[in-house]
Nucleic acid binder design. Structure first.
Lengths: 332, 332
DNA sequence: TCCCTCCGATCAAACGTTTTCCCTATTTGT
DNA sequence: ACAAATAGGGAAAACGTTTGATCGGAGGGA
């Protein structure tokens, strides 16, 4: 790496002169100025940020934010919440792991190595051992997962309760044969949502039916089509996310059934853009994501300052009712 | 700010011992170890990242990415493109300006002050003077806007061509009375899209009709409803973005007209999630956003290394045809 | 000629760590 | 009991930059 010293040597001047030229500070003759600039360019000089900031006595609090997919508005909101709290004084380094667990591990280690003062991990599939290891050095905030390590705080949504709310709502609107299109089982969130659904069904004396589907529109569409064709009796669908719900709605429409008159549908996540544009608009369970991001940042700052109070934050979802669960029309 | 020296003084040991304890490196007696840890905690010690990295001879190339709204998938994709190219070696500091021009200016200055090696600005409404000033120190990449400064590269989408494509497509599918729901005029992109629309109309000997609307669904809905009620003759809509197009579609449906049989609709941006979920699915002009982000990062790296070749990159949009512009049914 | 000023450039300290080398006790081995 | 090994700790250099102090010399005024 080329430093000021290298430039100084080649241009036959002192280091401080070079520094002054590059920063346009003190007074330097036009001749030397040009010469130095020239040499700097030739050598491809890139200033060393650390040296500069140390010399300038700049101190920055830096926190890392690792998320699986910045393209997804859900994580966008999370990021925004964090940045809002951090304002312009705390540096947030946001990195997208592209849902690649290896890359995630690498960037987390990198963040640690670079001296981040704390890391917020927005992915509940994160490697437990890694969290444990990192938390030995700096505080960690994780979403939707429990840890009992000293230096780790969990921020979770009460997924089970959200699912319970949604299912109960469907039942109260007159739908009886409510099925659940769930995620694959390994995930904490899909497990919890399933639990809530089952609890609500049992409470009303109905028998739950759960179909593992996945997470995108296509999957929801295919599964729903299959179920309808098979003659399965269904008048309500609680889906583990909005996309799957929208897929299911497409299948229902294609099959010639009316929403919400014949079948009611409720999603999860409340991606507003999506839910409101859909026709009929989609009822969904709302997560206060941005607020959760803000809390994550606040907690992180508290941990860094050693003024942490709580070890776990639980957020409550709320149901946003739109057209898709408007109530069943009973055939006379 | 508390430093190792402070801890050392209070704990009555040397700086190097403190460092060793905090990093778990050399050997230190259990007694001192505890003591030092205790003092460090009480004083609220936070390591100085710059000093550490300098000492460790770590060098990082840092580039700042400033965007107006990380919640928007469009900017999410941009961000992703940048991060993809930067990989794990170049540090990307992404900051959301919340569409607040003042905040934007502040964060850009901050980035400069912190020693970022380059800044990518994802907002065409950015302050020109600021760009000029910043570019005196470090390279800048800007989207959708032209600059002639030495150290600034523009990455633009050929908005005019995209609009032209969309409009021509509508005309060729049999729609004659194609209107344009445009943005407000101050923006470069809305100006260009309008131009393209007008060019296509004139080319076919039709007279363009442009209505300034805005950027969200509600605005599109209201304007379209008003136009339909007023009896305006319309069988085609080219909208300046997808949301406005979806609003217009809602109004059209409500008015009892069929899409695409009576009225054809084309949007802009091609927000896939939105366009495909809509029913009928929405044709739209696609911007290769992620690719543009990748290019921005590559160009930035080139500029930093002094190996820049081109001063301006123009990307071509492409039309994605879906159901909403399927062709007009002629009444017999 | 001498003194003062000002310009251009250099010197050297400082920023906060890490890390290598070195010193002194103490322990271990014979 | 004496040499050798080792544990515990400190001194100091190094990382690359910024910046105030300093210095030599040119030019100007008396």
């Amino acid at each position: 790496m080329v430093t000021l010293k290298d430039i100084a040597r080649i241009a036959n001047v002192s280091v401080s002169t070079v520094s002054k030229v590059l920063n346009g500070k003190g007074r330097v003759s036009e001749k030397k100025r040009r010469e130095i600039l020239q040499v700097a360019k030739e050598l491809g000089y890139v200033p060393n940020l650390h040296a500069r900031n140390m010399s300038k006595k700049v101190r920055i609090l830096t926190i890392g934010l690792v998320i699986p997919d910045i393209t997804n508005p859900f994580f966008g909101k999370l990021t925004r919440g964090v940045q809002k709290v951090c304002g312009e004084d705390v540096l947030v380094i946001t990195v997208d792991s592209f849902r690649d667990l290896d890359r995630e591990e690498r960037v987390i280690r990198k963040l640690l190595f670079l001296g981040a003062h704390g890391i917020i991990i927005g992915n509940s599939r994160v490697n437990d051992e890694l969290v444990k290891e990192v938390s030995r050095y700096i505080p960690v905030v994780v979403f939707d997962k429990d840890y009992e390590y000293e230096n780790v705080v969990s921020i979770v949504l009460d997924n089970s309760y959200g699912a319970y709310l949604a299912t109960k709502h469907l039942i109260e609107r007159g739908y009886r044969n409510v099925i659940h299109l769930g995620g694959t089982h390994e995930l904490y969130v899909s497990l919890k949502r399933r639990e809530g659904y089952e609890a609500a069904m049992r409470e009303k004396g109905l028998s739950p039916r759960v179909y593992p589907v996945g997470y995108d529109e296509e999957k929801g569409y295919k599964m729903m089509r299959k179920l309808l064709k098979s003659g399965e009796e269904i008048d309500g669908v609680f889906s583990m996310n909005d996309l799957v719900a929208l897929g299911a709605m497409r299948a229902i429409r294609e099959f010639g059934k009316k929403i919400p008159e014949d079948i009611g549908v409720v999603g999860f996540d409340n991606d507003e853009e999506l839910c409101e544009i859909a026709s009929p608009s989609l009822s969904s369970v709302h997560q206060p994501v941005e607020e959760m991001g803000e809390t994550a940042a606040k907690v992180m700052l508290d941990m860094i300052n050693g003024t942490l109070k709580v070890r776990k934050y639980i957020f409550s979802p709320r149901l946003v009712v739109r057209e898709s669960s408007g109530g069943k029309k009973v055939n006379l």
